[in-house]
Nucleic acid binder design. Structure first.
Lengths: 380, 380
DNA sequence: TTGAAAGCGATACCAC
DNA sequence: GTGGTATCGCTTTCAA
């Protein structure tokens, strides 16, 4: 390991002070626009600072104030585009207020997560944002123990209240999961559907539970078919969507519409429908939740409940600024509204129900191995 | 604006020193594993530091060393999943070495970009990574002027050498664009295709130019049909893919295969083929570049040249660590290999060529307005 | 091999 | 209003 070059020293507050023959503290006050400084002095200082191209050292300020003007974001992975939209919204709000955004992914690994929190604390981040990350009791305690504002996204504190952890210090920002599902069921019921299948997300996620409960209640409220067979468990990925769709569409009395708890699983459902020779939306209506980029593509055109990801990020940012400046330690929960975007995967219920081509369990495996995996890889 | 709470003070190096009755400087040396410290002393100090859960203050260290152990990443937006894979790879390498990753998006806006660079410099980042961002002369000068290591991703320094800017201080990491396209053409030629269409990316991007040139050369080298009509300009988005595909597939003698300079445009091409009643891959072979998540879906199953995004990120990280420790100011350019993933959108050239249903220009607009835009929005 | 002390650059407190 | 100065926590000479 060699020697690291030392960056050149820039203009300091003392340089500015000397150039003007005033005290450093006065310069500091002027730069912070404190009323205590005489207008004339302030103007002179500001002008000189600009002329000398003075740049405050973030490190020096952080050392004395113990605030770094930065927030750390922890997310399970960078793969989910929705997470990045959230960061995008967050970053735009924070950047404007002079805060930096630090990111770290955990790959859903506890050790990595702990290390990330650790690294953030060491850097004196002013707050930590946790997106959709499952936290065990240790991680929760670690977060609570560092005494920083913490905002949880898409995961209600209730998740670990059952684990007897002190969740009350955390803020929460999420979307109206139940309301979104209710609106989807309304939409389908309005088209005449009375037998609607639902593929859930992973039920350890609070958001997935809310979506599932939202479905149950909506079906009840509208007096639709509440057959328990119409509810199958999934896990937010494409293959789970295929599995769930196969289960639902193989029922002797199959549903005329399927709600998937996210768009990816809706795509899996579309794929299965195609395999069974069912035309969407003529024979089967399909809806998702999230409105990912691909849902808008003409070839897909999925009706879905849009996750307000950017709004969520902005909301997190605004909440943080609020906490920074107003020091309101009373935790809040923000639930953002969801809108249904009607595209072309939903249609009125057909007069007669086509059962579709039957599909065996083996055929799923065969189909996946033939189409999902890359068949050949040529190295260029 | 209220008062900001001061975070509690943690364990300092002095605390550890006092607990052991040694000098702070010795603790510092021990923590840095300097050979000068006696093994016994070092062991005692390390043990005590762990016992007291000592955490070095990043700010204090940054103040004296003028290095923050962090790098700033600038990207045009958070929407492109590929960028996030790059950050993912970068972050994993950096985190392991104790570096933090700061992110900022510019929305392709010059002012925002300048502000982001500014903010990074102020925070004493140790390096700046610029991903796929178009830089004007001012931004380039700003980057060069701050005296930090800079790595450009997917944009060769040559881009602005023409603008007389000092590009020689920048590193470059990218992929073998020309090689990837060549491999795709090889694959198609191997299937018997001799008339291949190409939809380019935006030609102000160096990577897009490399892909285009790669196509030209491969066609030449293999003696395929070099009709200039087979080359149409696009811009990396879905609609450009549709436009390009319509142009290519409306040729009196239409190509039997289409290469799109990225996957999104390949999807657009698939969509147009479907509208024209052409079956993929029976009537038309389609390939893309990037291998985005959706390309692997069974319903899409696109043959494509995989962009090694994570490798690119890791490579950037490794290069940075190298520069940090070896202080090798000699800039390098890293070009990562690309692999072709053969899926189900390519097949041997058919015996007879189906011209497909004709499509008017108006029908594109009509199709897009009917399928692309959300038709109804219900607020939940 | 260890210890004492001088900064790094900005803030904040208290005289003036 | 303004100026001196201690201080934040760590690194880094230089002396012992």
């Amino acid at each position: 390991m060699g020697v690291r070059r030392r960056a050149r020293r820039g203009i300091t507050i003392v340089d500015v002070a000397e150039a003007l023959g005033v005290a450093p503290s006065t310069v500091s006050n002027a730069l912070h626009d404190k009323d205590i400084v005489a207008p004339h002095t302030k103007a002179r200082i500001l002008a000189m600072a600009k002329a000398m191209n003075y740049q405050a050292s973030a490190a020096a300020r952080a050392l004395v104030t113990r605030q770094s003007s930065s927030v750390g974001v922890i997310l399970p992975d960078f793969a989910n585009p929705v997470f990045n939209e959230i960061i995008s919204g967050l970053n735009s709000v924070l950047a404007q207020a002079g805060y930096a955004t630090l990111v770290a992914s955990t790959s859903n690994d506890g050790r990595t997560c702990k290390a990330a929190i650790h690294a953030f604390v060491k850097r004196d981040v002013d707050a930590i944002v946790v997106i959709s990350q499952s936290l065990d009791v240790g991680e929760t305690a670690q977060l609570a123990g560092c005494g920083l504002p913490v905002v949880l996204v898409h995961r209600t504190p209730a998740d670990w209240q059952t684990a007897h952890a002190p969740s009350s210090t955390f803020d929460y920002v999420g979307m109206d999961n139940a309301g979104g599902v209710r609106a989807l069921v309304d939409h389908l019921a309005g088209l005449g559907h009375r037998r609607i299948g639902f593929i859930t997300g992973p039920l350890q996620s609070s958001a997935a539970c809310e979506r599932t409960e939202g479905f149950r209640h909506a079906v009840m409220a509208l007096g639709l078919d509440a057959d328990p067979q119409l509810l199958v468990e999934g896990s937010y990925d494409f293959i789970a969507g295929m599995r769930g769709a196969r289960a639902l569409l193989s029922l002797t009395q199959r549903p005329t519409a399927v709600i998937a708890a996210n768009d990816l699983m809706a795509f899996g459902t579309m794929d299965v429908a195609q395999q069974m020779g069912l035309a969407v939306p003529r024979d089967l209506s399909i809806v998702g939740i999230d409105d990912v980029f691909f849902s808008a593509f003409p070839m897909i055109s999925l009706t879905t409940a849009r996750q307000p990801a950017i709004d969520i990020g902005e909301s997190v940012g605004e909440r943080l600024l609020e906490r920074f400046f107003d020091d309101a330690p009373c935790p809040i929960a923000v639930t953002l509204p969801v809108e249904v975007i009607v595209r072309h995967s939903t249609a009125p219920v057909p007069d007669s129900i086509d059962p579709g081509r039957p599909l065996s369990v083996e055929s799923l495996e065969a189909y996946l191995t033939s189409r999902w995996k890359p068949s050949t890889v040529i190295v260029a």
